[in-house]
Computed example of a mutant assay.
Amino acid sequence: MKVVLLAGGFGTRLSEETHARPKPMIEVGGLPLLLHIMKMYSHHGFNDFIVCLGYMGYYIKEYFSNYLLHRSDVAIDFTTGSTRHFNTVVEPWRVSLVDTGLNTMTGGRLRRVKELIGNETFMMTYGDGVSDVDIGELAAFHRSHKRAATITAVQPPGRFGALELGSDGQITAFREKPADEAGWINGGFFVLEPSVFDLLEGDETVWERGPLEKLAERGDLAAYRHPGFWQPVDTLREKNLLEALWASGAPWKKW
C-alpha cells in the first residue's frame, strides 16, 4: 500500500523556521519531521512513499537524493580522492518526489499523483504531525468497513489547564491540560480507495472541504478513533514541545 505525504504548503504560521526550509524538513531531535513520519509508517511495514512537493520542494529532493551522505559518517581521502561512508543508515524505502505545484491545494496535490497510485487502496497524511497511531490496525479497520475513505479522528492536546469551579466561585480542582473537550477532529492518517479521485476537480480542490464533505454526506467516510498521542507542528511552541518530548522519550517513536 502506497503512502502519500502532503509536503508542499508554505507553513506561514511557523515562519521562524519555514523562511529557510519547508515545514516537513524542520528538525526534531536532529531529524526532519518528514523522516519521523516516514519511519512511523515503515515501522508498520509501509515503505512505498509518494511525497507531494511545492514550497521549497528542491530542499526535500536534495535531502533524499543525498540521503546516504546526510545519514552516514564519511571518510574522505584527499590523496586518492576516494570517499567512504560508514555507520550508514539504510531504509527499505521507495520514495517518489513529485512537484505538485507551488499554490496547489491539498486535494489538488493528491490529484496530481493519481497515476503513481493506480487503482489501489492507499494511505495519505500531512507532513507536519506525528502520532503513536497503530497504522496496521488503521489499515485493517479500513478494510473491515468497506467505505471509500477512513479518517483518523483524534482529540487535540489541551493547551491550557482547566479550572473546576464551585457555585460560589471557589476553585475546587485544577486539571492539567485536558484533551480538548470540543470533540474529535481530523488528525490526518487517511486510508483511501482510488474512487476518491472522482471528487478531485483540479489544483484548487481543498481535500478537507468538498471531497471529505461529500464522502460524509453519502455515508462513505468512516472514523478510526485514536485516543492516544497526536501532535501537529503549526507553531514554534509546538516544535519546541516535540523537542522536549524527544529528549524525554518520544511517544511516537516506535522505531
Rank of each mutant, 00 (worst) to 15 (best):
V51W: 02
L53H: 02
Y55C: 01
Y55T: 01
Y55H: 12
M56Q: 15
G57T: 10
Y58V: 10
Y58S: 15
Y59E: 09
Y59Q: 05
I60E: 06
E62L: 06
S65H: 15
N66R: 07
L68W: 04
L68Y: 06
L69P: 02
H70N: 04
H70C: 05
R71K: 13
D73M: 14
D73R: 15
A75R: 12
A75E: 14
I76S: 11
I76R: 11
D77Y: 11
F78C: 11
F78S: 09
G81R: 07
T83C: 04
T83V: 13
R84P: 01
R84N: 02
R84F: 03
R84E: 07
N87R: 12
T88G: 04
V90P: 00
V90E: 11
W93S: 14
R94C: 02
V95Y: 04
V95M: 04
S96E: 15
S96M: 10
S96F: 11
L97W: 03
L97V: 07
V98K: 04
V98M: 05
D99F: 04
T100M: 09
T100G: 13
G101Y: 05
G101D: 05
L102H: 13
L102E: 15
N103R: 14
N103S: 15
N103K: 12
M105F: 13
M105D: 02
T106S: 11
G107K: 01
G108F: 00
R109M: 06
L110S: 02
R112H: 08
R112M: 01
V113G: 04
V113R: 07
K114M: 13
K114G: 06
K114D: 13
K114E: 11
E115W: 04
E115N: 12
E115K: 09
G118C: 05
E120R: 14
F122N: 01
F122R: 10
F122W: 06
M123E: 06
M123G: 14
T125L: 09
T125D: 05
T125Q: 06
D128G: 02
V130D: 00
V130W: 00
